[in-house]
Amino acid sequence: MKRKNNDTRLLPPAGLGERLRRDVLLNWRLYVLLLPGVVSLVLFKLFPVAGMVIAFQDFSAFRGITGSTWVGLENFQRMFTDKYMLTLISNTVIIAILSIVCVFPIPIIFALLLNEERSRVVKNSVQSLSFLPYFISSAVMVSILATMLNPSTGIVNVIIRHFGGDAVNFMARPEWFRPLYILLQIWQTFGYNAIIYIAGITAINPELYEAAEVDGCQRWGKMIHVTIPGISTSIITMLIISIGQIFTVQTERIILMYNPSNAATSDVIQSYVYRIAFQSLGFPDYSYGTAVNLVKSVLAFILVIIANKLADRFAETRVF
């Protein structure tokens, strides 16, 4: 970490209390500005982290944190004997890996194609439309998907029937959950993520293209030898970031797409935690849910730290 906060003001040596007094006297306006931020940090960011102690309790909704009994590592032991955990973890990881493998390359390809487009009108209008889906809520998106895939009235099944096929209830089929989730992910993020690559392409020195042309490069040659290397840093950065966020699934979307029929593939850690706490048919299991989430959070934390280190080393950027 670089030291950039060398204070230029010269202060006579003084005791801690005296220095504090001076500091406050000099900077009280800044501290006033900072106060809401610190309060919000403590109450809304740190306090919930502290609340994770219920993972070590048998938390009772009525008794609260102070009144509930402590059970040590019982909830974690239960996790290791719970067979359903395997399903949850593999669902979570598969969705995460698919999200990288299938979703990651699309915006790059889109940016490259857009760069080759000659008509300004097409280029601008397509790009403008492309990130509209990013701003549509999960609730609307999943609702639209359900409308389009409705087994009796949806366009997809109407077309399937038109060609003599049998209607498929896509939203209730475990084998269709992942493709649909990924499809939504692509649809929602490709335009948004492409903006970064498009900006990268715009920033490439035109002389490089001219030089490539002198070397006899055609369109493909220029794309491979100039454009792609030109945005390689962005690509690597984005890739590392997405690997770091492997456990960050679109919880809202999954909860909205989940139903008991497709649970075999659609139930991931986050949706499970939500369900056992807020939609349980029995007693809500706040403690177990928190324990499961705690393990996930620790793993995710380690991954993000590694990714950040990697990004720092290979792409000379950091996420934070």
Binding site: P48, V49, G51, I54, I65, V273, A277, Y286, N293
Partner: peptide, 11 residues
């Protein structure tokens, strides 16, 4: 480090 929904809810 994500605290998760439940601790957030309780807090």
């Amino acid at each position: 480090f994500d605290a998760g929904m439940i601790p957030r809810y309780i807090a």
